[in-house]
């Protein structure tokens, strides 16, 4: 099986700062990957480069063997890559249901059914008609999460899913992520909560100053000297 996502020597500079420097990653289908690193190490920029929100300066991104670098974000989405944001970005003046409906075109009844399923999946079906802006932080987080699932993407990028979420909700989210993996989806998540990363991910990439520092199973990464140094300094 070829890798589902292949990033090769990806580089992004902002002015004089190299935010992502020749980073290469390879993701296999049906697994959960973690992306960690200190603040400002380039994790979100890497996400933005993969999803087309930021234009890369050099390097390649291949999804299912096809080049997707240089595509617009909406095109990348239609190739089958969905993402969430670090700061919640639901559409506040649309209802929860409408937030889901806008993601798909095509058959209305089917989209409605799918949206209903997803709302039940995260147990917020009673809030379908509520404006998203009126939902609690946690509910918005769930809404943003299921919005990605409307079109059933094969690769899902989650930017800090656990941030600001209480224990109960977090466990539900993590179960949902595992359930997706079991259905063959691939997940790449940026996360600061090490417990989450260690408990969930099968492979972890470490970024520091825009460069890939290490890669491996969580247990190995945890004891890697360079990683400890990057996080805690000499």
């Amino acid at each position: 099986m070829p890798p589902i996502l292949e990033v090769t020597n990806l580089t992004k500079r902002f002015g004089g700062v190299t935010a992502v420097n020749r980073v290469s990653l390879s993701l296999d289908a049906g697994r959960i990957y973690g992306l960690i690193g200190p603040n400002g190490s380039g994790k979100t920029t890497l996400f933005n480069c993969i999803t087309g929100l930021v234009r890369r300066d050099a390097g390649e991104v291949r999804f299912k063997r096809r080049r997707i670098d240089g595509l617009k974000p909406h095109q990348v989405f239609h190739h089958g890559i969905g993402r969430t944001f670090q700061v919640i970005r639901v559409f506040p003046e649309l209802t929860a249901l409408e937030n889901l409906m806008v993601v798909t075109t095509g058959d209305h009844a089917r989209a409605c059914r799918r949206a209903g399923e997803l709302l039940r999946f995260v147990k917020i079906e009673s809030l379908a008609g509520e404006y998203a802006g009126n939902l609690s932080y946690g509910q918005q987080k769930l809404l943003e999460f299921i919005r990605v699932l409307m079109t059933d993407p094969e690769l899902i990028l989650l930017d800090e899913p656990a941030a600001g979420v209480n224990r109960t909700l977090l466990n539900e989210l993590l179960d949902a992520v595992r359930a997706l993996r079991d259905r063959g989806k691939t997940i790449l998540l940026v996360e600061h909560d090490m417990k989450v990363v260690m408990g969930l991910c099968e492979t972890v990439f470490v970024l520091d100053h825009g460069e890939k520092l290490a890669e491996g199973p969580p247990g190995v990464i945890q004891s890697d000297e360079r990683v400890i140094e990057a996080y805690f300094g000499r």
Binding site: T51, L53, K72, H74, R89, E93, V103
Partner: peptide, 20 residues
């Protein structure tokens, strides 16, 4: 609704597959 997503959050709309 899709037009309104542009008003609400254009970046998120793009990321959700809408050719804004």
């Amino acid at each position: 609704l899709r037009l309104m997503t542009i008003r609400e959050d254009e970046v998120a709309a793009e990321a959700m597959g809408i050719d804004t």
